[in-house]
């Protein structure tokens, strides 16, 4: 089963993501968002960045986590090609991001995401213990 799917929203784009653990859920969310933003051909990560993210609850944490990765791309022109969440609680996470510099000649841009929104944001664990999240991106 793929670990994310795209959901219809009239103006924007919804994302539904799954993961066996909360860590995996957040890693999959990051990977699926980057997949929507830019097409990366095989590249060796050139830099590792440690990030700490704080939020009020898992939903806020997810918006801020994705916001961090989006900013690194939009503001610092770095693509997070891989992420590993090393520790996570309801209000805090530590992660290691493997980055490559964005190169317009090598990487095809797919969508411009303005921001990660709080509209209909959800993080939950289903009966089968699988974690599920939903988030809407403003295009």
């Amino acid at each position: 089963m793929p670990n994310f799917s795209i959901i219809d929203h009239t103006a924007d784009l919804g994302l539904k993501v799954w993961g066996e653990t909360l860590e995996k859920l957040f890693e999959n969310a990051a990977a699926s968002m980057i997949q929507l933003v830019v097409k990366v051909s095989a590249a060796l990560p050139s830099e590792t960045v440690e990030v700490k993210v704080f939020g009020n609850d898992p939903e806020d944490l997810l918006v801020r986590w994705l916001g961090e990765i989006l900013y690194l791309f939009e503001g610092e022109k770095k693509i997070a090609v891989n992420s590993r969440v090393t520790s996570i609680s309801r209000q805090h996470l530590d992660a290691t991001l493997q980055m490559i510099p964005y190169d317009p000649d090598l990487h095809e841009l797919l969508s411009e995401i303005k921001a990660v929104t709080y509209h209909l944001i959800r993080v939950s664990q289903k009966e089968d213990r699988l974690w599920e999240a939903q988030v809407i991106l403003d295009l």
Binding site: N56, D60, V63, R64, G67, Y71, E74, G75, K114, A115, V116, Y118, D138
Partner: peptide, 17 residues
């Protein structure tokens, strides 16, 4: 552009927290 997007994002977080 990104200037406005980030300002909105920053203040949503500030007011939402």
């Amino acid at each position: 552009r990104g200037f406005g997007h980030q300002i909105c994002d920053d203040f949503l977080k500030k007011m939402g927290s």
